[in-house]
Write a protein that binds this DNA or RNA. Structure first.
Lengths: 106, 106
DNA sequence: TGCTTTATTGGTAAAAATACCAACTTCCCA
DNA sequence: TGGGAAGTTGGTATTTTTACCAATAAAGCA
């Protein structure tokens, strides 16, 4: 079995993705780099809230940022995070399927 | 972009994996079904704590359980969760690489 | 039927995560 | 060089998560 320390490192990365807003940000960045203001305007949340979500993603190594004049550009650093979504979809589909089995075989 | 509701559903599944103990449990279950007592004895935690972690995984649809006499058997329901680990490893490696770049190019 | 083993549930205290407002830093440009 | 635009940081209240202990439920066995 993996060590607790290894599990802590892994879970810190997974935890960074474990929030709907951060998931939507990652989804947004899949189509390429975005300015902070573009990301921010996709939500009805305070800009400081978005800034902190981006910091969480950055500290996990999932996104990176660079300054460009006034603006801050954010970029998806590890494209494979989209692999997560494939499996998450599989879990959701499996859940639906099993619930149906339950309904038909109570 | 995905909807907030879709993102909430996805993040609830990712959140279930966002804890070192639950990650270790999933890792343990990759080699096959395990009794509760086997899982429990892999940790120095109260059995109620382990039971609650298993409940989180179960409610997310990641594991399932069945009774066998005295014992409760837990099983990994969606093997693809191991896909997560591949990407997590990639993130970790990328983080290490970039930190080295930093060290060599300060 | 009572007893024991096995696991879950209830309750609670402590820690972590989240969102907002306000204040601050940076950077461009007039 | 001072004003404004763009983001970040600090501070705080609220919510969520987590771990323990104690009590409860389920199932085989004496």
């Amino acid at each position: 079995m993996i060590s607790f320390q290894e599990a802590e490192i892994r879970s810190s990365i997974i935890k960074a993705l474990a929030h709907p807003v951060r998931l939507m940000i990652v989804d947004l960045l899949q189509s390429g780099e975005k300015q902070f203001s573009e990301i921010n305007s996709a939500f009805q949340l305070d800009k400081s809230t978005i800034s902190k979500h981006l910091l969480v993603l950055k500290e996990a190594g999932i996104v990176s940022s660079r300054k460009d004049g006034h603006d801050m550009i954010y970029k998806l650093e590890v494209p494979c995070v989209t692999d997560f979504f494939g499996c998450v979809t599989a879990v959701i589909e499996n859940n639906i399927r099993r619930q149906q089995v339950c309904l038909f075989n109570p």
